[in-house]
């Protein structure tokens, strides 16, 4: 066998040895605990603080709005869809205010006429014609929108 091939095989053996050593020492403990991933990743993901706290949490304080909302057509829409995530607000409501949607532009994201949208489920209007520039909430209460 030529000398350079012998040396290369030796170099490869050293390299493979280093790689195996690295693999042995650096592979995370929980690797392959359940499959080809870190088992601890599941705990890390589960430990993340949820940003959305759910409507039931909102109703604990805002009960009058909750009562109104569950009677209306927006009953299946979570509060945080319009007001943003509430995890900070729950801890310190005075400091971390919830967002208030700005004007009609917000409403027409869902309610503007769009042929791709199912008309039976989401009421749709031609915004310019329907409100003539008036803000939607002048006539409709978003917590209990009537038709």
């Amino acid at each position: 066998m030529p000398l350079q091939v012998k040396r290369l095989l030796l170099a490869f053996a050293v390299f493979i040895g280093i790689m195996l050593g690295l693999k042995y020492f650096l592979t995370p403990d929980s690797w392959r605990e359940y499959g080809p991933y870190r088992g601890k990743a599941l705990i890390e993901i589960a430990d993340k603080v949820p940003k959305y706290v759910d409507m039931e949490t909102c109703i604990m304080c805002h009960d009058s709005i909750g009562e109104l909302k569950i009677q209306g057509l927006h009953k299946s829409i979570q509060c945080e869809i319009c007001h943003g995530p509430g995890y900070l607000h729950v801890d310190e409501p005075e400091i971390n205010k919830m967002k208030l949607p700005a004007g009609s532009e917000f409403c027409i994201q869902c309610h503007a006429r769009n042929a791709a949208r199912p008309d039976k489920i989401i009421k749709q209007v031609d915004a310019a014609e329907h409100s003539e520039g008036e803000n939607c909430i002048s006539c409709h209460n978003p917590h209990e929108p009537w038709l």
Partner: peptide
């Protein structure tokens, strides 16, 4: 996106 409103501004259709 912090809120759905911001996200919706980037979308068309469903």
């Amino acid at each position: 996106f912090e809120t759905l409103y911001e996200a919706l501004a980037n979308l068309d259709g469903f």
